[in-house]
Every structure is written in C-alpha cells, then in structure tokens.
C-alpha cells in the first residue's frame, strides 16, 4: 500500500505540473487583460505601459520561465486586478468552498445511501416511486429556480432565514440545501440501481432464504458491493463542488472559489486562475487517491 501511495504521489505531481503548463500556455491564447483592466478610452501609451509593467510584452516562453522561477521560490504571483498575492486570494476563498463542499457531500452520501437502499429494497413500491420522482425533479431542475424561490419564500415572505451572505449558521442553510439537491438526485439513483442489482444477486437471495433479517441484508452484504460506483459518482460530484459552486456563490453572495475562478478567467487574471487550479487540483487528486484506497478497503480483491 505504501508503495502504491508513493507511486501515485509521484504520478500526481507529474500531472499537476502538466496541468499547470497546459493552463499557462492555453490561457494566454485567450488574449491579454490590458483592454479589460483599463478604461475603454485609455490611450495606446497607457496600454503599452500596462503590458510592460506586467511583463505581457515578453515572449511567452520568457513569461513562463519567470513564473516557474517564482513558483520554485514559493511565490505564486500577484493578482493583476486585486494587487494581492494570488495564493492568498485563492486560499481565503477556498476555505469557504471546502466547508461548503464537505458538508454537502457528507449529507448527500448519508441521505443517498439510506433513502436509495430503502427505495431499492421496496423497488417498484410507493416509497421508491416517490423518492425517485422527487429526486429526479430536483436533480434536473435549474438550480437558480430553487435558490430564488427559496429566498422569496423563506426570507422575504416567511422571514425565517437571511437572504444571503455569511455570518451565522443560518446563513449556511439555504446554500447547502440548494447545493445538495442535484448531487443527491444522481447519487440516489446510482445507489438505488446498484442496490437493486446487488439485492437480486444469488448470495443475497440465499441469505434471505436463510431468514436473515431485512436490514442486515441490505447494509452488510449488498451495500458493500454496491458502494463502488456510488463513491465514484459522489467523488465526481465532490470534484465539481471543489471547483466551486457558481450558482450558489453568485446568488447567496458566498465568497467561494467558483465565482473567483470564473471572474478571473473572464478578466484574464492568469495568476489567480493558475493558483486556483493548483489548489483545487491538489484537493481533487487527493480525493481520487482516497477513493481508490476506499475501493480496496471495500473489496479486498481489488489491488493495484
């Protein structure tokens, strides 16, 4: 196992470097930030000065050299727009995203496994139909609908929750609830599908025939087999959230990394884009490693 992790860490480091190189060169194909940063009527001289100041006139390979040298010195550059260290900008946003994503993923996992298992156990029954129906509607509805309707209902009309922002635990309720809905629908369906297959396989039938009670059947035998695709899908959803929950962040004024990333891409604030990708990529790589380890824990036959 230690050998596996060591090899994996090395491979991941290589992919991270590849990713950064790729992003560095590709993002610079999308124009430079000069026209976006300066007012429309800025003269050609001031544009030139801006480019000179931020090294945008250098050949791209020279710019890359500077960047690599700085990163080796643990300097990830300054944000052009914010005049602050890019890494600081990203980390302060990422902490919010991390809490939001972890809480939501935890809730999704627990709820999907419990409700999905029950739906599979009573497949075709009323509970199954209702759970499937509601979760599918939630998963395919535009998320801003749910967010805005929730604000109008719970904040403006009922006055139960604050509309948006941060500060108290109540501010977290609506963002987490809205973020929960879509992944929950998909995770629930995957749990349900895998569990139906697992429950109808011969060994579970045998256990049933032997008179083992309902809940141990589900949770010990079937679940173990069904979990592989489930954690994979939840992992993918978590990766999406670690890249930022854009709709939730824009509507609820939540200072996460998703809106930061989008704004930085649209404004060509390359250093922030690179720092943000670096941080979220590390989180995603780590998560995928944990998932792979979880496979072999769940199913000892799987070895790498």
């Amino acid at each position: 196992m230690r050998h596996f992790i060591g090899k994996r860490a090395f491979a991941s480091a290589l992919s991270l470097i590849g990713l950064i190189v790729l992003v560095f060169f590709l993002s610079r194909l999308t124009g430079d930030p000069t026209a976006l940063f300066l007012p429309l009527d800025a003269s050609l001289e001031s544009r030139e000065r801006f480019r000179e100041l931020h090294g945008l006139n250098d050949p791209i390979i020279v710019q890359f050299g500077h960047y690599v040298w700085d990163v080796l010195n643990l300097d990830f550059g300054d944000s052009i727009r914010k005049a602050r260290p890019a890494l600081e900008v990203v980390l302060s946003a990422f902490q919010w995203t991390l809490i939001l994503a972890l809480t939501t993923v935890f809730l999704v996992t627990v709820a999907a496994i419990i409700i999905g298992s029950l739906a599979a156990f009573y497949a075709g029954g009323v509970f199954d139909r209702i759970a499937t129906f509601l979760s599918l509607i939630g998963a395919s509805a535009p998320d801003f609908w749910i967010a805005i309707v929730a604000i109008v209902l719970f904040s403006v009309n009922l006055g139960w929750l604050p509309t948006s922002g941060t500060g108290t635990i109540w501010h977290w309720v609506m963002p987490i609830a809205v973020l929960f809905i879509r992944p929950f629908g998909l995770a629930l369906q995957v749990v349900r599908g895998s569990m139906i297959t697992a429950l109808s396989s011969a060994y579970v039938k045998t256990a049933r025939a032997k008179g083992v009670k309902a809940s141990p059947i589900i949770f010990v035998h079937a679940l173990r087999n069904a979990l592989l695709p489930v954690i994979t899908v939840i992992g993918d959803l978590a990766a999406g959230m670690l890249n930022g929950a854009v709709v939730v962040e824009t509507i609820f004024g939540f200072p996460g990394v998703g809106k930061l990333m989008i704004d930085s891409i649209l404004q060509r604030d390359f250093t922030v884009v690179l720092a943000a990708i670096m941080v979220s990529a590390m989180a995603i790589f780590l998560m995928n490693l944990l998932i792979d380890i979880a496979y072999s824990v769940l199913d000892p036959r799987i070895r790498y």
């Binding site: 491979a11 991941s12 290589l14 992919s15 590849g18 990713l19 790729l22 992003v23 590709l26 993002s27 194909l29 999308t30 124009g31 993918d236 990766a239 890249n243 990333m261 989008i262 891409i265 649209l266 884009v273 990708i277 979220s280 990529a281 995603i284 790589f285 995928n288 790498y304």
Partner: peptide, 29 residues
C-alpha cells in the same frame, strides 16, 4: 494493469481539475 491505465487515470484527474469555462474560452478563441 499497464502503464496506459495509469496515464488514462491521471488524464482524468487533469480534466476534472480543468475549469470548463476556461476550456470554453480557449475553444472560443
């Protein structure tokens, strides 16, 4: 269980970490 499978998986890691909006902007340009 070859090296190809490792490369494919790391490639998937990279795609997962690559913001889709950035990809879109690059394609647009």
């Amino acid at each position: 269980k070859t090296r190809a499978s490792q490369i494919i998986l790391r490639l998937a890691d990279v795609i997962m970490s690559f913001p889709s909006l950035l990809l879109a902007v690059i394609v647009l340009y």
